[in-house]
Amino acid sequence: MTEQLSTQKAINTALREILADDAKSLVFGEDVGKLGGVFRVTDGLQTEFGAHRVIDTPLAESGILGMAAGLAMAGHRPIPEVQFDGFAYPAMNQIISQIARTNYRSRGATPMQMVLRIPSYGGIRAPELHGESIEATLAHVPGLKVVSPSNPHQAYHLLRRAHEMPDPVMFMEPKSRYWNRGDVDFENPGDLEGSLVAREGEDLTIIAWGAMVARSLEVAELAAEDDVSIEVVDARWLKPLDEDGLVASVAKTGRAVIVHEAPRTAGLGAEIGQLLTERLWGKLEAPVERVTGYDVPTPAGDLEDEYIPSIDRILFGVQRSLEY
């Protein structure tokens, strides 16, 4: 069955099915119950599954994640939410020193099976610390897995997949895409491992994730008008990165532009660029280009468009690569 849904509704549907199928699953966080979350992603779940399984927690992110760790130790499979990306910072002690290494510390005896949902990235003119791109920070921590869907179909299926995984998964939802609709094919998830070619092309590969996938697809459409054939790869899994998939695309096109909202220095663009250089040394037609946020705190709404890679900035990146 295929249905047209927004990403927000697709995640809501996945959560509803998980709660129905898995008695050990719980959804909790700030305002996720009665209100249904500030983005209404958890709308209706408390009514359906009860306040004991869909919990409005006190306002304390470390508490939310520490509670998740304790639940996982007891064999439950929590799906906590931090309300906004920047609110993951107060929870970093629990994420980094506890959740990421409890499996290690206990030599595998107490796995931390959980999915932390993080409404992520910018693009909605939100206040400070409501538009952070923290994927590299999380990917750097041993013991965590990181995934970021780009559309409703991916959001639905990747969340269900993440919930089945025995390790802690950081699920980064592109909040600027919550309301964009798309087909969700419930029966045919497609391959949920690794990256995905979102558009095929011959001349150059753009690697992106989250909200930057849709923007890169627009860039590819514009470039096609100038007879430039761009392949867009949705990285999806940021840890582990799909090394073979990313390399295969760039081996074909010879050119790569990596697009992310996060600051450039020590961002995942650097990691992917290093991967491509290592695996495709001598075969690249041009140096790997990066189009990213700047090394500045995510600016206030009025400057957001200067910060987040725009279609024009991505086109400049494409041009630099093609003209090298």
């Binding site: 470390s62 520490g66 760790a69 304790g70 639940l71 007891a74 929590p78 020193s97 506890q98 510390r105």
Partner: peptide, 23 residues
């Protein structure tokens, strides 16, 4: 639990684990 160095952090684990017992 295994011993570990960040004191206080385990109080939250106790809370989450205890909530699970209640459930």
């Amino acid at each position: 639990s295994p011993l570990q160095a960040v004191v206080g952090a385990t109080a939250l684990h106790a809370m989450g684990w205890a909530y699970a017992q209640k459930l």
